[in-house]
Write a protein that binds this DNA or RNA. Structure first.
Lengths: 210, 210, 210, 210
DNA sequence: TTCTAATCGAGACGGTACGTCCCGTCTTGCC
DNA sequence: GGCAAGACGGGACGTACCGTCTCGATTAGAA
């Protein structure tokens, strides 16, 4: 929808319609910034489109011209936020350090309070909205699972893991304990926890592969 | 709040106020049933107190006489729902089978769609409401962590795990991968997954304890 | 719709539903007063429901609980205003003085700036809304035409006018020149004008009857 | 404002600016036509500038380049409409037939539904806008009153009316009953009504002059 | 003919008001 | 006092227009 086209953005607009008017990047930026700020202050449920518009110095219609609903806007914003921080598959040369790097990467992204807030909020909507669920899976979860898969593959190639290892399990173990702890338990996860977790995951993967 | 006093309940009322009338159990039950039904149909965010009252054939005031807010009601309801299904520490005589039983227990509770819906919904509010966070931790998370701790202690007593094992890690590993998968990824978790997970956790705990 | 039932009004409410809640007279009164005030200040087209609600210290919903739209509200209010000032057929014993009294009565009602404002405003809507047109004719115009008819009949009974006189013409002549002058030309109409008009109408009726 | 300059119109443009472009007659015509059509369909209050622009296949700016507001446009359009049908003072040689001709002329103009619609709509605005009121009086009412005055003067010159006759009364009687009937009562006015009215006015003027 | 400036269609912009929905509270009359 | 019904003040929703502004693409008068 409002995923800015890079070419257009250089021209200060986002869409090019022959003879028509284009959404203005400055306005989109102001809205985006205001939305993230409101989100950080009040959370998804309490956030109002009117407050975002007011904060951005923008009419409500400018929001609805870009997104068809409050939820649509948040979905798009979180998509941008997580895409801007795409996880790179770490390649440190050893499974253990790869795991540690991956866990640190997940932690780093979830430590952003706005990302955490929006993800938590969207979880509540997933059941009601298949499109939202798909987006979350595709844009948020898949790249992270892919990174986990790559990490496992590299370990197999190095001979650290047998080829029979369960790749899905690997993805779950890299994301879930940390995610659960940070998003749900509101718990902290220091370097020691990550180190312990990396050790456990490594052993778990090897054991489950047999 | 409205946590029904057992004594009063046997008398058909819930609270006893000197000289006044008591909240009627029939009304409370009708509300509870209606609330769970609405919850299952529309989810937390879209659920309205007015719809609950209408469905229960009850005035809105009857709801607010029992709970001080929509969120308060849901918190209380989910508390009841999870307390009705308190996890017993499994004692099968072996760590692996204990883990398998615990994972199955977690799966069983999260398989209830209303429980899943409310939990997901409440996650969104956790950041804004410390009391809610506390309740969720105390009533929902702690008993489950306690069960995981007991399971680990039994394994230590049997000599299956060294005494140095990380109990917190154990709790995380029992709850998180399954919870993440079911609540967030909307994924399924069949017996094979649980078996694999149990194997991985067992190995992970042993490795991390060293 | 909100035409207050006298019985209920004495009880402070307007509608009585078994077991239900009734619209409160105090609120209705506050809205009515605020609406007339806004009307007088800004006119129909520029008047906003939000301003009325604000001025009345009332939620917008309170307005829409009583009337289904801005226009519906105004129609109802003007109906009340003109019904509260129903014209009595004058009976002074002579056609000329009856005419003079009738003209003065019309002038008195149109001199109310809120009545004048609302009538002018509603005229603009008449074409688009048959129900509104009907209401205006039935509630506003008919009683006034009936008064004119009675006046003519009395004159016939007294022998001042022949039985063949055109009653419709009489009604037009009593209402139209004054109404046009006051509503449309924004002109004033002093006693001398009324006297002249009464003389002209009397002669006109006699001439047209022949 | 945008009252087309006849000279420029012959050249296909309306205004001449040094070095620049002029408002194009084709565009103005398309707007005018679309505006009257929208007016006829939806009335003044419900008519939107956006709908006019869309219907005319024109940008909104083209409208606002010509008129400064919706009301300004309508005022201008109705001015054109009534000026295109300027009343000529009838001169049939007798007061009665002059009156009959004048009444028929008024009827003819008010029978145009767009004219009737716009006049009704503008009445609602008169109180709020002095300039509009002035325009309506000057452009719409004055020529008609002037025609009535001329008619009366001719009758005086012929000796049909005494010099003391009230000219204002004459104008009121020629315009008001018909206008009221047609604009406000939505009533019809056939030839018989006009004949009766002419008779009554003639007698009324003579009586009131004494 | 070439330059150049205002007009053009399209529609985004900041606003205001619409009529709707729901929150949590209050009011009424019955039990 | 609880209860059913639902009105209350409040606030956000998403929509429709207002009158203005911004594009790039004509278009026509002046050079």
């Amino acid at each position: 929808m409002a995923t800015a086209d890079a070419e257009a953005e250089r021209m200060g607009t986002e869409r090019t319609a022959s003879g028509g008017a284009a959404l203005r990047t400055r306005v989109t930026d102001a809205i985006t910034e205001a939305a993230f700020a409101e989100l950080a202050e009040t959370g998804y449920a309490r956030m109002s489109m009117e407050a975002v518009a007011r904060r951005a110095g923008v009419g409500k219609a400018a929001l609805y011209r870009r997104w068809s609903s409050k939820q649509g806007m948040l979905v798009d914003l979180i998509r941008q936020a997580v895409q801007d921080a795409l996880p790179q598959a770490p390649d440190t040369g050893a499974l253990h350090t790869d795991l540690r790097a991956s866990l640190a990467n997940v932690r780093g992204q979830l430590a952003n309070p706005m990302v955490a807030s929006v993800i938590r909020s969207l979880l509540a909507e997933v059941r009601q909205d298949g499109a939202l669920a798909d987006m979350l899976l595709t844009v948020v979860a898949q790249p992270r699972r892919a990174a986990a898969h790559a990490l496992v593959q590299a370990a197999i190639d190095r001979g650290e893991l047998p080829a029979s290892v369960d790749r899905e399990l690997a993805a779950d173990l890299v994301i879930a304990p940390l995610g659960f702890r940070m998003l749900i338990m509101n718990g902290d996860s220091d370097d020691a926890y990550i180190e312990t977790l990396a050790t456990a995951i490594e052993a778990g993967l090897k054991a489950a592969a047999r």
